[in-house]
Write a protein that binds this DNA or RNA. Structure first.
Length: 857
RNA sequence: GCCCCUGUGGCGGAAUUGGUAGACGCGGCAGACUCAAAAUCUGUUGUUGGUGACAACGUGCUGGUUCGAGUCCGGCCAGGGGCACCA
C-alpha cells in the first residue's frame, strides 16, 4: 500500500499549475465572469493563521466557480505602506522599502505553498511607484472635482513622535508608540469629502443583499443619519450676538425648554471668554478635560451660567438661561442645543444639578394622571404619547408634533427641517514617510498647485533618515524645496502622505488591469467589477468597506468606473483562536512550550505546572500563536486547508487544536487509501455505466449524487463545515463498499471521481494526485464540477416518524407520497404504537405526508 | 446607557417552511491485528433506570402559542461585539 506524500506531491502540482498558467485569466466575453477577492495582506513578514483561513475560503470559492464554468479572477497583492516599516527602520536601521520587499518575498513564498488558485501575474504592491503613481492621479481628479480639500481641524497629535495619529492609534488617551498623552491640535489637514455621498451610501446599503446584516447595520449606525429642526433663539440684549442656532431631533418638546447649552468651542462662548474671566476659566478647563475621549465617559456634566437669556421662539415674553456646558460637541449640529429636562436623561441630570425647571410636555400613553408627572424622578424619552402644556401642539402625538413644530418654525422664518450625520469627512493626511506622497505644491502666491503631469509621479526619496522624531520627508534637506509650477517662485512640496486606507480603497479596481498605463482600464473594470465575492475580517466592517464604497462613487463621477458598489457579495470570517497557557509566575507560554504531563494536565517542557486559560484570538501578547509555515511544512497545505474548513462555521471564531489538525491529516491519508485499494478493480476512464446495477451499486450511485447536490448547495451558501461533513459521509460509504460484479466497479469509479471532484476545491493537491491516479491526463483544476442526476437524488422511499401524544414511538419506511389513509394505517399498525395507545381514546391523527404521523390521545 | 449577535453531549458543531434533537468530526471506552508499539480496522459513546425490549428526562432559565417548539411569541440570565455626551 502506498502512502500519500503530501510534501512532494504538493510541490509537484503547484509547479504544474504555474507551468501551464492554469489560473491566468483575461477578459472573455464568452464566459460569465466571477471576481473572488480576499482582503490583501499587510506584508509583516509571515503569514498567520487568519490569512490561512481567509485565503482557504476564497480559494474554495474560486476553484468551485471555475469548475462551474466561470471565468474567475482571483488576484493577490500587498497593502504595503504603513507604520511598521518605519518602526523597523528606526529600530533595526533597515530601509522601509528593503524591509517591505523582503517581507513580500517571504510571504509570497508562504502563500504559494498553500496552493492557492491565484493569478500571480496580476500581483501588485501599493508601495510601488507603479501603483501609487495612479493613486496620485486619482487624487488630482478628486481635487479638481472638489472631493479633496484642506481644512483646519481638531486632530490627535502625538507630541513625542510629532505626528497626527488616527483615532485607532490612540489608546487610553496616549500615543500607541510613544506612550505620551495625545493632544487635540488644530491643524490644517487633507480631507476627502465622503459627506457628499452619505445619503447614497446609506440608502444603497439596502441593495447589498449579499452583505451580512451585521455589517450593514454597523455602517448605518456609523453614518448616523438624523432628521431634525435647526432653529434660532434670539438673545436678550446682545446686539453683538443677536441669536444662537440650535439643532434638535425633538422639536416636539420645545415647550419643555428650560435652558440653552452651548459648546465651549462655540463662537459665543469664545466671545464671552474674552469679556469675562470666570467664563474664560470654565471654557479653558472644559477644553482640557472635555476633549480627552477617555475622560468623557466619567466626566461630570458641568455648566457655566452666562447670565444671558434667550427668547423662547414659541412663547412670547418667555426667556431661558444660556449655559456654556462641557458636554456639547462643536462638531455635531450647530454646537448648541436647547435643554428639555423632562424628556432627555442628560438634560434631566443637568437641570437637577443646577435647579432648573423641569417641564413635562409629553404624556406617556399609560399615564392616567398627567398632574403626577412632576413627581417622576427620571426623564421620559420615548417618542410615544400625547403633547400637553404645549400651546398649538397640545393633543398631538409625538410624530405629529415633530412635523407641526418644524412647519411652524419654517412658517415663522426662524428655522428649517434639516438632516444631520454623525459621519465626518475622512482625514487622509499623515505626517509619515512610508506612504503615498500627496502630489501638490504649496506656493505663497498661487496657493495649492497640483503637481503637473510632466512631473508625475511624485516619488518618495530614498535617502531618508529616521534619527529624529517626526516626518522624515519634512526633515529631508532638499526634497520639499521646489519651484512653483505656475509662477516659478520658490515653493514647498506637500510632505504629508496618504493614510494607507486610501491605498486599499481602489486596489480591487487596479487588479482588473494591473499593468495599464492608467489607474484602471475602463473595459477591464467594466468586465470584472464589482467584486462578486469579497472575504475578510469583521474588523474592517466600517472603515475600509465604507471608504471603498465612497471611492467607487467618486471614481464613477469621473467616468473611471461604471458601478457604485465595489463588493456585490461580502463574507466576514471569524477569527482563529487557541488555548492560552501561563506558568506559575504568570508568564505566557507558547503552545509548543507546553506538553501533557503523566496525569494529562499541561506542564512546561521542564516539568513545571502550567495553567491552561481561555481560548482567545491568536496574539503575540498571549503567545498562543501557531506558525502556519510549521504546519504547512509538517502536514502540508491540504491538511491545513481541510482543518480550516472543518467543524466551525466560517463566520464564527474557530479553535485551532493539534487533535483537529491530526484528524484532517488522517482523513487525507484515508482518502488516498480508499482510492489505492479500489484502483485494481476499476474499469477504464470513460467506460459506460451498465444499464442494470446491483442494489448496493445503485445505492452507492445515489449516495454519490446526493452528496454532489448537498455539497454544491453548501459551498454556494458558505457552509463549508457542512460540505466537509457530507464528504466524510461519502468517504465512509465508499470505504464500506465492496464491489462484486463489473457493474459495481463502474459505480465505484463514478463515486470515486465524484468524491475527488468535491474534495478538489478544498484539498487541491490531493485532488490532482487522485485524479491522475484514476487515469486522467487532464488537470482536476480544468475539470467541470459534477452534475447531480435528479433521478438519483430523488428518494423513492422516506422515513416517517410516528408519534403518540407528541412522543416518538416508531419510525416506518414507506414509499414517497404515500396517501394519507395508507400512511395512517401503516403508522397505527406498528406494535409499539399500538402499545402506547392501548386503553386510550384516539382523539385525532395528524398526518404530514413524507414526514410525520402524530396520534393524539 | 443604547443597538446587535450568540447560548444544543466531554469538545467543535448538524438539524429545509415548526415535524425523528445530537449528522459529521474530535475525544473517551472496549476489542482485532502486533512479541510490543505506532498506524489501521471493528464496535460503542446525551443523562438516568433496566440483562433486555423499552421507559423517563434532555437544546441557558421561565412562561405562552401548537397535535407537535432547538426553531415562533413574552419575561429573565450569561457570554461576545458595535456605538457612546450625536442633541
Amino acid at each position: 500500500m502506498s502512502r500519500y506524500n503530501a510534501k512532494e506531491t504538493e510541490k509537484k502540482w503547484q509547479a504544474a499549475w504555474a507551468g501551464r498558467g492554469t489560473f491566468r485569466v483575461g477578459e472573455d466575453a464568452s464566459k460569465p465572469k466571477y471576481y473572488v477577492l480576499e482582503m490583501f495582506p499587510y506584508p509583516s513578514g509571515r503569514i498567520h493563521m487568519g490569512h490561512v483561513r481567509n485565503y482557504t475560503m476564497g480559494d474554495v470559492v474560486a476553484r468551485y466557480k471555475r469548475a462551474r464554468g466561470f471565468n474567475v479572477l482571483h488576484p493577490m497583492g500587498w497593502d504595503a505602506f504603513g507604520l511598521p516599516a518605519e518602526n523597523a527602520a528606526r529600530d533595526k536601521g533597515v530601509h522601509p522599502a528593503d524591509w517591505t520587499y523582503a517581507n513580500i518575498a517571504d510571504m509570497r513564498r508562504d502563500l504559494q505553498s498553500m496552493g492557492l488558485s491565484l493569478d500571480w501575474s496580476r500581483e501588485i504592491a501599493t508601495c510601488h511607484p507603479e501603483y501609487y503613481r495612479h493613486q496620485q492621479k486619482l487624487f488630482l481628479d478628486l481635487l479638481a472635482a472638489g472631493l479633496a480639500y484642506r481644512k483646519e481641524a481638531s486632530v490627535n497629535w502625538d507630541p513625542v513622535d510629532q505626528t497626527v495619529l488616527a483615532n485607532e492609534q490612540v489608546i487610553d488617551g496616549r500615543g500607541w508608540r510613544s506612550g505620551a498623552p495625545v493632544e487635540k491640535r488644530k491643524l490644517t489637514q487633507w480631507f476627502f469629502r465622503i459627506t457628499a455621498f452619505l445619503e447614497d451610501l446609506l440608502r444603497a446599503l439596502d441593495t447589498l443583499d449579499r452583505w451580512p446584516d451585521r455589517v450593514r447595520l454597523m455602517q448605518r449606525n456609523w453614518i448616523g443619519r438624523s432628521e431634525g429642526l435647526q432653529l434660532h433663539f434670539d438673545l436678550v440684549d446682545r446686539p453683538d450676538f443677536p441669536r444662537i442656532d440650535i439643532y434638535t431631533t425633538r422639536p416636539d418638546t420645545l415647550f419643555g425648554a428650560s435652558f440653552l447649552a452651548i459648546s465651549p468651542e462655540h463662537p459665543f462662548a469664545q466671545a464671552l471668554a474674552k469679556e469675562n474671566a470666570a467664563a474664560a476659566a470654565f471654557v479653558a478647563e472644559s477644553l482640557r478635560t472635555g476633549t480627552s475621549e477617555a475622560l468623557i465617559e466619567t466626566a461630570e456634566k458641568r455648566g457655566f451660567d452666562t447670565g444671558v437669556r434667550a427668547r423662547h421662539p414659541f412663547i412670547p415674553g418667555h426667556t431661558v438661561p444660556v449655559f456654556v456646558v462641557n458636554f456639547v460637541l462643536m462638531e455635531y449640529g450647530t454646537g448648541a442645543i436647547f435643554g428639555c429636562p423632562a424628556h432627555d436623561e442628560r438634560d434631566f441630570e443637568f437641570a437637577t444639578k443646577y435647579r432648573l425647571p423641569i417641564l413635562w410636555v409629553v404624556c406617556p400613553p399609560d399615564e392616567k394622571n398627567p398632574a403626577s408627572l412632576p413627581t417622576r424622578r427620571e426623564a421620559y424619552t420615548e417618542k410615544l404619547g400625547r403633547m400637553i402644556n404645549s400651546g398649538f401642539l397640545d393633543g398631538l402625538d409625538v410624530p405629529e408634533a415633530i412635523r407641526a413644530a418644524i412647519a411652524k418654525a419654517e412658517a415663522m422664518g426662524i428655522g428649517k427641517g434639516v438632516v444631520n450625520f454623525r459621519q465626518r469627512d475622512w482625514l487622509v493626511s499623515r505626517q509619515r514617510y512610508w506612504g503615498c506622497p500627496i502630489p501638490v505644491i504649496h506656493c505663497g502666491a498661487c496657493g495649492i498647485v497640483p503637481v503637473p503631469e510632466r512631473d508625475m509621479p511624485v516619488k518618495l526619496p530614498d535617502d531618508v533618515r529616521f534619527d529624529k522624531p517626526g516626518n522624515p520627508l519634512d526633515h529631508h534637506p532638499t526634497w520639499k524645496h521646489v519651484a512653483c509650477p505656475k509662477c516659478g517662485a520658490a515653493a514647498r512640496r506637500e510632505t504629508d502622505t496618504f493614510d494607507t486606507f486610501v491605498d486599499s480603497s481602489w486596489y480591487f479596481g487596479r487588479f482588473c488591469s494591473p499593468r495599464a498605463d492608467e489607474p484602471m482600464q475602463r473595459a477591464a473594470v467594466d468586465y470584472w467589477l464589482p467584486v462578486d465575492q469579497y472575504i475578510g475580517g469583521i474588523e474592517h466592517a466600517i472603515l475600509h468597506l465604507l471608504y471603498s464604497r465612497f471611492f467607487m462613487r467618486a471614481l464613477k463621477l469621473d467616468g473611471r468606473v461604471g458601478v457604485d458598489e465595489p463588493f456585490a457579495g461580502l463574507f466576514t470570517q471569524g477569527m482563529v483562536c487557541h488555548e492560552t497557557y501561563q506558568d506559575a509566575s504568570g508568564n505566557w507560554l507558547m503552545p509548543n512550550e507546553v506538553t501533557r504531563g503523566p496525569d494529562g494536565n499541561w506542564i512546561s517542557l521542564d516539568g513545571q505546572k502550567v495553567a491552561a486559560g481561555r481560548v482567545e484570538k491568536m496574539s503575540k501578547s498571549k503567545k498562543n500563536v501557531i506558525d502556519p509555515s510549521s504546519i504547512l511544512d509538517q502536514y502540508g497545505a491540504d491538511t491545513a486547508r481541510w482543518f480550516m474548513l472543518s467543524d466551525s462555521p466560517p463566520e464564527r471564531d474557530m479553535e485551532w487544536t493539534t487533535a483537529g489538525v491530526e484528524g484532517a491529516w488522517r482523513f487525507s491519508q484515508r482518502l488516498w487509501r480508499i482510492l489505492d485499494e479500489a484502483l485494481p478493480a476499476l474499469p477504464a476512464t470513460g467506460a459506460a455505466m451498465p444499464a442494470a446495477l446491483s442494489a448496493p451499486a445503485f445505492a452507492l450511485r445515489q449516495a454519490a449524487h446526493r452528496t454532489v447536490a448537498a455539497v454544491t448547495n453548501d459551498i454556494e451558501t458558505f457552509h463549508f463545515n457542512r460540505a466537509v461533513a457530507r464528504i466524510y459521509e461519502l468517504a465512509n460509504t465508499l470505504q464500506e463498499f465492496r464491489p462484486g460484479d463489473a457493474g459495481d466497479s463502474h459505480a465505484l469509479r463514478e463515486a470515486l471521481e465524484i468524491l475527488v471532484c468535491l474534495v478538489g476545491p478544498m484539498m487541491p493537491h490531493l485532488g490532482e494526485e487522485m485524479w491522475a491516479a484514476l487515469g486522467h491526463q487532464t488537470l482536476l483544476a480544468d475539470t467541470a464540477w459534477p452534475e447531480a442526476a435528479p433521478e438519483l437524488v430523488y428518494q423513492d422511499t422516506v422515513m416517517v416518524a410516528v408519534q403518540v401524544g407528541g412522543k416518538l414511538r416508531a419510525t416506518i419506511e414507506v414509499s414517497r407520497d404515500l396517501d394519507q389513509a395508507a400512511l395512517e394505517a401503516a403508522a397505527l399498525s406498528q406494535e409499539n404504537v399500538q402499545r402506547a395507545i392501548a386503553g386510550r381514546t384516539l382523539r385525532k391523527v395528524i398526518v404530514v405526508p413524507n414526514r410525520i404521523v402524530n396520534v393524539v390521545v
